[in-house]
Computed example of a mutant assay.
Amino acid sequence: MSDYSTLNILLIIITFFIAGFVKGVAGMGLPTMAMGILSVVMSPLSAASLLIIPSFVTNFWQLFTGPNFVGLIKRFWIMMVGIIIGTLAGSWLLTSANTPYTGIVLGLALLFYSIHGLTAKPLFTPLRLERRLSPIMGLVTGLLNGATGVFTLPAVPYIQSLGLSKDDLIQALGLAFTVSTIALAAGLFKGGAFHLGNISLSALAVAPALFGMWTGTIIRKRISVKTFRICFFIFIAVLGLELALHPILTS
């Protein structure tokens, strides 16, 4: 993003407060919400570069909220390797000149994610299949992460399908999100897209993201999470549809 105007800075602050609020209430969704909003007014590449620091800070905190860090590393290390490889391989699309195509991919990813969230059909992965599926899920998650800056699919529904305890689920998601953020930063840096200006604005987004998380955590205790998640996924679906159709409608 080349124009660091007051309006742009205000948009970034509001966006990351909303994204942090969503993460505080629903336990996830900061990168998805931030990419969905920012990509409407800027390129997905610029939006992804702003995600790095606030996403890392919030996910790193989430990673260390549970007691089973070492155990989860041993269980999911091969999936994390897949995420890294996939992200580095897919980041060429995000850093290329064909940003309208990344917008379409992002929109389709958001639509798929919202449909899964709204249908809320429970998934279950047998333990015997985990060793085979983990590297595949990691690689696909990484490819989508590298191409769109969104690292929720298919990692989130897959990890949710493993029958983990609540604490282990939150910590496992934190692990996947942290690794995805680091890999995305490496891919953007390799593609020459993570500059000093991006770092400054990304750091600026940390405070509103954390404040949004804190606010969301308080609100989570007072409203129905089910109702909020329905509204969240409908909003994500609208954003995804707009992003997927925008290059076609304006061509």
Rank of each mutant, 00 (worst) to 15 (best):
102 T>K: 02
228 F>R: 03
51 L>A: 11
171 Q>T: 05
78 I>N: 04
86 G>I: 07
63 L>H: 06
162 L>H: 06
127 L>S: 15
78 I>M: 06
54 P>L: 00
229 R>T: 10
13 I>D: 12
132 R>C: 05
41 V>D: 02
76 F>I: 12
238 V>Q: 04
155 A>P: 09
97 A>Q: 11
210 L>K: 00
21 F>P: 00
178 T>S: 15
209 A>N: 04
99 T>C: 02
190 K>N: 13
156 V>N: 09
94 L>R: 08
242 E>R: 14
229 R>H: 08
155 A>G: 10
179 V>A: 08
182 I>H: 02
210 L>F: 05
46 S>T: 07
23 K>F: 01
8 N>H: 14
234 I>Y: 03
69 F>A: 08
231 C>R: 05
40 V>N: 14
8 N>E: 14
26 A>N: 15
231 C>N: 02
198 N>K: 15
249 L>Y: 11
82 G>E: 02
73 I>S: 14
81 V>A: 03
141 T>N: 13
161 S>I: 03
153 L>T: 12
85 I>P: 10
25 V>L: 10
200 S>P: 02
165 S>M: 02
96 S>A: 01
32 T>A: 09
184 L>F: 00
144 L>W: 07
87 T>Y: 05
76 F>G: 14
14 I>Y: 05
225 V>S: 14
191 G>W: 06
10 L>H: 09
64 F>K: 01
232 F>N: 07
197 G>W: 06
207 A>Y: 07
94 L>F: 08
55 S>F: 04
185 A>N: 03
106 L>E: 13
169 L>D: 00
156 V>I: 13
91 S>A: 13
251 S>Q: 12
190 K>I: 11
142 G>I: 03
156 V>S: 03
142 G>M: 05
241 L>E: 06
96 S>N: 08
3 D>Q: 15
152 T>M: 14
135 P>A: 08
229 R>Q: 12
128 R>T: 12
213 M>D: 01
10 L>I: 03
84 I>K: 14
205 A>N: 00
230 I>R: 06
90 G>T: 09
157 P>Q: 08
